[in-house]
Design a protein around this nucleic acid. Structure first.
Lengths: 222, 222
DNA sequence: TAGCGGTTTAGTACATTGTACGATATTCTT
DNA sequence: AAGAATATCGTACAATGTACTAAACCGCTA
C-alpha cells in the first residue's frame, strides 16, 4: 500500500468542541460578535450549520465557551510572589485579554454561569490575596474593587470608536465639531489639551488608576 | 356637542418618540433586553410593528435612545458643591440607575455614539472636577478611574444571578456544592465566611472601593 | 468480503427577527 | 369640501437558531 493520497492537500481537520470554540473566538475577533452566527461559523470551518450541534448544545453554550477561552488565555497570579506585583501583572493580563477580544466584555453581563478557566482564575487571585495576609473580608473588598476597575476600564476601551493609537484625532475630529457649539466647554478642553495631543493613548490611563488602587490597598493592610 | 364618547375607556395615547423609548425601557426592565423586539414593543404599546418606524429609524436608534434615557435619570453633579461629596453622590446615582436598568451596562459596549443626556452628564462631571482644582490631565485620570470603577461594579452586579439581598444563599447553595470538591478552597472560604453570612449584600462593597478611590484622588491633589 | 452498530455530518423545514415598500387612515389647511 | 401633510398599518422577504430526519463514515465481527 504505497499511499492513500488525500484528495485535498489540507484535508479538513476533524471537528471537535475545542476547534468549534477556537474558530468562534477567531470569527468574533475578526468580524465582531454580531457576525458570529451558527451559519457563518460553520462556513468558516468548511462545514454545515447542523454539524456543529454535535459538539455544542446550542449557541448559548458557544457564547459561554468563548468567554471561558478568553479567561484561559490569562496567566494566573502566584501566591508565592509579591502580592502587589502579582496583582499588577494580573490586571494587565486581564485587560490585554479583554482588549484582544473586546466582545468578551459585553458577554460578561449576560453569561451567568462561570466556566472552569474563570473559576481557576478567581481561585488563584483570591489565593494570592489571602497568602499576602489580607483578611477574608478585606480580600473580598479588594477583589471586588480590582475587578470592577479592570472590567470597567475594558468596557470603556471597548466602547471607544477607535482602536489604534494615532487614529484618535481622525476619529475624534468630527465629534469635536459637535462640541464647538460651546455647550460642552470642559469636554472640549479635555479633548484639545489631552486626548488629541499626539501620542495620547487611552490605555495609558490604566496604570494611574491601578497604582492608586494598589496604593490604597497597601495602606489598608496596615 | 355633549360628548364624543371614546369607544374605549382609555383611548390609546398618541405615539411619540418619547413614548416609544419609554415603553422600550419598561419592557427591557420587565422582560430583559433580549425580549425587546420591535414586535413585542409594538404589542406592549397596543400598536403594530411598522408604526414605530415613523418615530425611530431602526432598532439601533431605539437601543441608543434607551441608553440615553438611563443617563437622563441621573442627577448631575454640581461644580458649586464639595467635589468629594459630589463625586460620591454621582457614583451612587450612576450605580443605582444601572442597577434599575441592568441591560444598559451591556449596551454601553456596543453603542458608540453618546446621546445628549450622556454628554451633559460627562460635561457636568468634568466641570465639577475642574472647579475643584484638578488639572486637565488629572481630571482625565480621575474621570477614567471613577467611571471604570462604577461601570465595572455595575457590570459585576448585572452578572450576579440574584438581585434581591437575602436570596443570595438560596442561589449560591448549588454553586457552593460545585466547589465542595476542594478544587476551589479560597472561593469556598469567601463564600461561607463572607458572602453567605446573613445580611450580606454585594452592593455594600461599593462604598469601600469608592472611598478608597476618593481618598487616593484627594491625596493626589496635594 | 459482507454486513452492522455507533459516531459524525448534512438536508430540509419552521418559527422568529428586523425592516423595505407601498397602501391606507387620520388630521389640518384652505 | 378638497387636497396636503401627517400618521398608521399590511404584506413580504431575507437572515437567524435549531428540531427532526436521513445519510455517510468508521471499525469491527462473521
Amino acid at each position: 500500500m504505497p499511499d492513500t493520497a488525500q484528495p485535498l492537500p489540507q484535508r479538513r481537520l476533524p471537528l471537535s468542541r475545542e476547534r468549534v470554540l477556537g474558530c468562534a473566538v477567531d470569527l468574533a475577533d475578526e468580524s465582531g460578535i454580531a457576525a458570529l452566527t451558527i451559519r457563518s461559523l460553520a462556513r468558516s470551518m468548511g462545514t454545515k450549520p447542523m454539524s456543529l450541534y454535535y459538539y455544542v448544545a446550542n449557541k448559548d453554550e458557544i457564547l459561554d465557551g468563548i468567554v471561558d477561552m478568553v479567561f484561559g488565555e490569562i496567566d494566573l497570579p502566584s501566591p508565592a510572589g509579591d502580592w502587589r506585583e502579582e496583582m499588577h501583572r494580573r490586571a494587565h493580563a486581564v485587560r490585554s485579554a479583554l482588549k484582544r477580544h473586546p466582545w468578551a466584555v459585553g458577554l460578561l453581563e449576560s453569561r451567568s454561569s462561570p466556566g472552569e478557566a474563570n473559576l481557576r482564575h478567581h481561585e488563584a487571585t483570591l489565593g494570592t490575596l489571602r497568602a499576602a495576609g489580607f483578611s477574608v473580608h478585606m480580600t473580598a473588598h479588594a477583589y471586588a474593587l480590582l475587578d470592577s476597575y479592570i472590567y470597567g476600564f475594558a468596557l470603556q476601551e471597548a466602547a471607544l470608536p477607535f482602536d489604534g493609537r494615532d487614529t484618535a484625532s481622525e476619529i475624534t475630529a468630527p465629534i469635536v465639531e459637535r462640541f464647538s457649539t460651546g455647550q460642552y466647554p470642559h469636554m472640549m478642553e479635555i479633548a484639545t489639551e489631552h486626548v488629541l495631543k499626539p501620542g495620547y493613548d487611552f490605555g495609558d490611563e490604566f496604570d494611574f488608576g491601578l497604582n492608586l488602587i494598589l496604593d490604597g490597598l497597601s495602606r489598608s493592610m496596615g
